[in-house]
Design a binder for these strands. Structure first.
Lengths: 256, 256
DNA sequence: TATTGACCCTCACGTAGCGTCAGGGACTAT
DNA sequence: ATAGTCCCTGACGCTACGTGAGGGTCAATA
């Protein structure tokens, strides 16, 4: 097994030599062994540990904590990697959100339209986002099966005529909104309220329980986070997915 | 126009009051005006400037430079936003790369297969990686540059045209499944696998990350729990929502 | 009117995670 | 033996704030 010097490890991992010194000093990553010339030599295990360290660092975890985590008895590397994966993809979502925020800011600057102040910073402050998602889980995550059964049963209990009517309702709303989008009606304009009101009523019907404004806003987020929704709405009209989602949120806000 | 106090700005933007004090002190973000009580009051312009600051900060640009950029004569806010967008989506790609690195590490740990040391850190510390790759090329010449160029080109070519193709893919899948349903093919029959496999690949594309079987099964649940999905799929063919969802789950189970 | 409680201010020192010399050995190759 | 490139150990500096301390301000209440 080859042993690596500081510089080699540095090149491989992309960190500086000084950083390796630092990690050694604070006991976070000690070399496999040191020669009698006091040189640091690293092996395969150290490379893996360094990967762990850097992944944790990427998530903003302080070095002290990283050490504690890695040295905890019963530390499961596979499980840890899976958790990293999870958190990293959340970070990725945050970045996507940021890109959307920028798009909206650009649009609002170009069109001289106003933008709600709170929306200026969407995706920037991670904690608030997390808070909101926790709320979402509380709202939706807990009783999945029950909810599924409810809406499914609800739909099945409808007569053929009623089903058609509901689908017509949905279709109408989409057409109306697409029309608005084509006409350049801004996202969340009050003129869209009747359409969205009907949509919300329709959602309540399907769920078999009321759909409060916050839940409606949550739904808007859901739309943007799932490929099928995006694909379907984008084919109706380019930009429609975001337009719909944004409008739903503004509407929910006005109602709440 | 309403004026905002430090705490209000802090709440809106997600930064701390101390940070606002700091930005004032270093002249990065000064309040619109200060009362004779020495209170700081911010207006709309300051909120926009703060957004700019935070977006730049997100990219790791030091505060001093941010100030220089924003105060440069001829600073074009729109152009700046577009650049931010560009760089942020690169960051997002980096995160996707990180997730893939983790997936590969997991696979290599599970399968006891070896992983090239350099690949352990793909996605971490981007600039040095580029440097390293240049060094690699210089050292080994050969096939390395070709490989890099290939995957990069592939990624970038995934734009508007490809998107349409992917949507077509979705449409085809739906038609195929609806056909199966009409013919009485049972839920989750293996004959449906090619269609569902393509669907899963499509979902992965849309997410920008792999969609493991469990996630795919989760999506199946989501479909059934949401009125919009039910309505849409039911209009394709009565019973289609449940058929699709059930098939997805069986498929996921076979894969996992 | 007085008192609370939640704001606001200005110092000022502390911290994390390194960057960056300075000063001095070690190794390899000509 | 000399050069060039690596390695080491201090030690001080820097950024971007966190965290009190000590003390005014404001709006609503008692």
């Amino acid at each position: 097994m080859k042993t690596l010097t500081v510089k080699e490890v540095a090149r491989l991992s992309g960190v500086s030599v000084r950083t390796l010194h630092h990690y050694d000093q604070i006991g976070l990553l000690r070399p496999a062994f040191t020669g009698q010339n006091r040189y640091r030599y690293y092996g395969q295990d150290e490379l893996l540990r360094l990967q762990q360290i850097l992944l944790h660092r990427e998530l903003g975890i302080p070095l002290g904590e990283i050490g504690a985590i890695l040295d905890a008895p019963g530390f499961d590397r596979l499980e840890a990697l899976r958790q990293q994966r999870q958190r990293l993809s959340e970070e990725a979502k945050r970045y996507a959100q940021l890109v959307r925020t920028i798009d909206r800011t650009i649009a609002s600057l170009e069109g001289d339209r106003a933008m709600r102040n709170a929306d200026l910073y969407k995706g920037i402050s991670p904690d608030k986002q997390a808070e909101y998602e926790a709320w979402l889980v509380e709202q939706y995550g807990g009783d999945m099966p029950e909810r599924i059964a409810l809406s499914k049963h609800k739909y099945e209990s409808l007569s053929e005529a009623e089903r058609l009517e509901l689908n017509q309702e949905l279709h109408d709303m989409e057409q109306g909104l697409a029309e608005g989008l084509r006409r350049g009606v801004p996202m969340g304009s009050p003129s869209l309220d009747p359409l969205l009101g009907r949509h919300r009523a329709w959602v309540s019907q399907m769920w078999g329980r009321p759909c409060p404004p916050e839940a409606y806003a949550g739904l808007a987020d859901l739309y943007l986070s799932h490929p099928d929704f995006i694909a379907r709405y984008e084919t109706i009209e380019p930009g429609f997915a975001e337009y719909l989602s944004g409008s739903m949120k503004v509407y929910a806000n006005r109602q709440g």
